[in-house]
Amino acid sequence: MPTLQEIAWKTDGPDIRFVSGHRMCSGCGIGAIVKTVLAASDKPVVVVNATGCLEVVTTTYPFTSWNTPWMHLTFENAASVASGIEAAYKALKRSGKITDDVNILAIGGDGGTYDIGFQALSGALERRHKFMYLVYDNEAYMNTGDQRSGATPFGANTTTVPVGKVSFGKPQWRKNLVEIAAAHRIPYVAQTAAHSIMDLYKKAQKGFNADGPAVLAVLQPCTTNWAFDPSLTMQYSKLAVETNFWPLYEVENGVVHINVKPSNRKPIEEFLKGQTRFRHLFKPENAHVIVEMQKMIDDEWARLLKIEESGIQF
């Protein structure tokens, strides 16, 4: 396993694949996620990016922050485009028209992955194209100002399911993308978070080296729409893990392994407080929402532990 020095040399050294001058909000963790994932590949990476925050801020013509082959087509089809790139790669390699080895990386936000790009992702996983799909999950449509997605957590205030006299925000729990992806029986699926650079790097490496499709779900605290001070991005990412809101685990060839088990899990309030999207939950009339959320988190965690313990393969 490389040291953080070695990783830094790859992410920010002379072979940098993702450069400065992008227009992400100050403090947005996507930059750290993307540079780390790109650095984890020992081959050049061909990237296809779904429409979303990352695409918009990194390629405003005539500027591009990509120092690696990159393309964008539309919103819901990064996995399908990756399928085509992989097919082309196989065909052109076979015919000797190209000789360089590459890794193929599709990137989408949670909207482009859990929602509108869900079918394309499932199709590409089922067809077992050799590519990695990276979702940076900021838990709503943040590029367009915080509309609800299938990844938005229970109780969150969004502009399309706002808090009101008779609403405490989103009444549904979020989708579990990792389990859905794992149900495709692909070689590697992992969940990780922006602050956990080593874990992210390791998992990206495993994903790139997997013998088939891999999915990497990365929590990306959104300073703008979760509305916390930009210096706290990595802190919120940490808290999500320490509260078991966002467990770090992986499913390798169907076997579940939890990477971090907080010895003393923090109450969910620790994660919720300071985020505008959850502010209303601290009113007395919404106390039950936090109770319910805590119960769901604990139940899910207990379930995950049981799955790991059982050794049963996905």
Binding site: T11, D12, M24, G27
Partner: peptide, 14 residues
């Protein structure tokens, strides 16, 4: 290298 790898803007050279 914590600050380097965290910097979202690749603004800390090495």
């Amino acid at each position: 290298m914590i600050c380097v790898t965290y910097c979202p803007d690749m603004a800390i050279p090495v």
